[in-house]
Design a binder for these strands. Structure first.
Lengths: 227, 227
DNA sequence: AATTAACATAAGGTTGCCCTTATTATTGCC
DNA sequence: GGCAATAATAAGGGCAACCTTATGTTAATT
């Protein structure tokens, strides 16, 4: 596995792809939106990545990572999440800032630093946001959960991970207590893709307690819960 | 002190300036050489940095950092050297690789990470290469030493720091045991800017011991010893 | 079958940072 | 005072990664 030096931009595209959908095709539009670039720029980049054998673009269908592309992407994800562990556990950086700060570092991290960091941290399996950390050999078992937006009304589920990358979105979820390990009850789902009414940390027995909050459906997509 | 987001390239130029000469003018040529770019590119960059108020360029004399430029440069140096501490003390990265690996990280390090890292490390005063770490407020007392190339023949001096940035140079010095804390005796200086003959870790009393080695004068410039 | 939204592609532009080549200016030194 | 070495400037180019605008193409929906 020879990983040539790829640009930060390239790494971001690949990472976004693996974050958006593991092994499935990703629509160019979704990718562009996530990366805050235009679809034209994304198309252009996909052509370049295609030439490098990192992605396969099927016009009008979407793009998918190749084996090589997925390897690189998982490696980026590994670096990102290891840094998140370090920043949170050792530097006491605020939970809401982890993604952004770790993201900058990840692109500047040489393989020997990545592996030494993993050893230093004790080879953690998940990051503070609840996402699994790909192994050094590239193996990566994605989380087995569903977005909160797809949970059944009335169900009480445990939050496994928060998937958001935009700091304001993360902040919004954090303020509502939607963190890994916490439980949440879906009280109501408004019709027409309306927001969810939730009860975060509901009491074990019926009765008062927990925090009621309303969450937009598109935000609820970022919260991965037990299926 | 508002530090706007500066490019990696900008930071490298500023760092090189403060490393080359504290407060004095630096010749464009030297700067270019250190950064492995052409003098034309360096001139161009100095114009840009001048426009941003980071440097003052006096044609045919050289460039000097402004107050603002020096602040930024010291901040870069701080990040660089804090990372060196972390990489060496906690990740057990090889001494010869510290500069290069810390350099990548430094540009990706947000202020809150820098300060949290400093706290984590216990606010170290020097990096593993022996160089002082600028304080958070920007104050920075450069090392009070002289290059080994200027030490008197016959003198035995202690190595304070190694200033080199190129990994091959660092490797060369490392192999000869020229590390901070070690003593070195200048046995002979060949004429016409010839190499030095050294004895590294000489015995306390006269007698055998220590390691004899020959070191080019330009390499000896990178070794800072007690004056 | 027609329409619309999403996507693809072409063309041309910008910015930052680097390059080469060539010409001119200055400085320090013999 | 003249001559190298060094420095500055001008002109033209390249590359990566973005942008806008405009024009086709496909797929999904009605």
């Amino acid at each position: 596995m020879i990983i040539q030096q790829l640009s930060e931009s390239t790494e971001m595209y690949l990472k976004a792809m693996v974050e958006l959908s593991d092994r499935e095709m990703v629509a160019i539009g979704r990718l562009a939106e996530r990366l805050s670039v235009t679809a034209v720029s994304t198309n252009e980049m996909m052509r370049r990545l295609g030439e490098q054998g990192l992605v396969k673009h099927t016009p009008y269908k979407g793009v998918a990572l190749t084996k090589k592309g997925r390897e690189v992407a998982c490696n980026v994800l590994r670096r990102q999440r290891l840094w998140e562990c370090f920043l949170y556990d050792h530097l006491k950086i605020e939970w809401t800032q982890l993604y952004e700060l770790a993201c900058s570092l990840e692109h500047a991290t040489a393989p020997e630093v990545t592996e030494a960091l993993a050893v230093f941290l004790g080879n953690p399996k998940t990051c503070p946001r609840g996402n699994p950390i790909p192994a050094a050999d590239g193996s990566f078992v994605p989380l087995n959960g569903i977005p909160l937006s797809e949970a059944a009304v009335g169900a009480t589920v445990r939050v496994l991970a928060v998937n958001a990358t935009a700091t304001d979105v993360i902040q919004h979820l954090f303020e509502r207590g939607l963190l890994p390990g916490h439980k949440v009850k879906v009280v109501e789902a408004a019709p027409l893709q309306g927001p969810l009414t939730l009860c975060v940390d509901p009491p074990e027995k019926n009765g008062a307690g927990g925090k009621e909050t309303v969450l937009g459906l598109s935000l609820a997509e970022f919260v991965i819960v037990e299926s």
